[in-house]
Design a protein around this nucleic acid. Structure first.
Lengths: 180, 180
DNA sequence: CAGTTTATGTCAGCCTTGTTGACTTTCCAA
DNA sequence: TTGGAAAGTCAACAAGGCTGACATAAACTG
């Protein structure tokens, strides 16, 4: 019922993609390896958000505010609709977060010139300061991790993460890559 | 204020760990690369949780139930305290989840033999069935990602994730690895 | 044995962040 | 001019975090 049985069953299907070289061991595709990846994602994501979360808690903001700030910083002048698409939440959910950020003077919302229905979002100076603090806290941990793991590991890390994404999200990710 | 300036500043410190070979390019440590890693983590985690989330929604359970089920499955007979440590939530939060799982007959709680204050947690047959469905949904995506990326990428993926974890969580992760 | 600590459970209340549904205002475009 | 897209708002709700207070049983300690 478990162990070897499960692992075998998971290898039953046809093999495609980068691992198609016929002589390959395929030991990296056992259920045991997959489970390790799953647990690593869980524990790592906790670490990944821990540092910004601490800073945000002091300012009585949450992770949702961080995400909004991050992507407004990344794509200045973005519309609400575009942000909704990237963040994958409802407009009511985003609006609540956006409203507090605008009220607190971290984000400014300007009516579109070409299409006056749209709102274009930008960080104020104060918003950029917070973004810098949050971003640097998060990068610090990533930088240390990258250093320890080395460039080849980092390349693999990026490759696997991209494959885990939903195709639609991968498109967004790729567009951000180009823009950066 | 941005771009090259930031990237340069981030490389100012002393270099340690696996990237210490002196002739290395270190381009993988630029703020731009780190940002890509951060965004990849964000988008990938969404994909990572998407499939189980869909299944759980049908049964009016949430991600918290999945996590409890996963780790009870991984360490059968674990105590509540141990689970609290791994999940990193308060006992009130865990208890709410655990209570519904016990009431619904997915988890059973047995008084400890050696120490009768402790409760030992196990999945019932029904609990194991749900774990299998959720686990297989999550593994399916990971398996596809692993296949596409290949074994070297997977090794790097694991390395970087382990470095991102808090040391305490890395200990838990390592213990689970051994046990598996 | 008395007192303390530990493990667990529970009640009450709060916050953030997600959801759905209904509705309005604005305004571009056919 | 009318349809529909974009944006915003209000209300209500749920999941899942949190704190604080308190109860109980068991184990440990002096």
């Amino acid at each position: 019922m478990r162990g070897a049985d499960m692992a075998d069953s998971s290898l039953g299907g046809p093999i495609g993609g980068a691992a198609r070289s016929s002589g390959e061991t395929l030991l990296f595709l056992t259920d045991d390896q997959l489970r390790r990846g799953i647990e690593a994602m869980f524990f790592a994501y906790r670490g990944f958000t821990a540092d910004p979360d601490r800073i945000l808690a002091e300012k009585s903001y949450g992770r949702a505010h961080h995400r909004a700030i991050h992507f407004i910083h990344r794509t200045p002048g973005t519309t609400v609709n575009n942000l909704l698409d990237i963040l994958g939440v409802t407009k009511q959910s985003l609006n609540r977060v956006l409203r507090t950020l605008i009220e607190d003077g971290l984000v400014e919302s300007k009516v579109g010139v070409k299409d006056r229905r749209e709102r274009h979002l930008n960080l104020t100076e104060e918003g950029q300061e917070l973004e810098k603090v949050l971003g640097e806290a998060q990068r610090k941990r990533m930088r240390a991790a990258y250093r320890e793991a080395g460039p080849d590991a980092v390349a693999g890390f990026q490759q696997v993460l991209q494959q885990i994404m939903d195709p639609k999200m991968r498109t967004h990710f790729d567009q951000l890559k180009e823009g950066g």
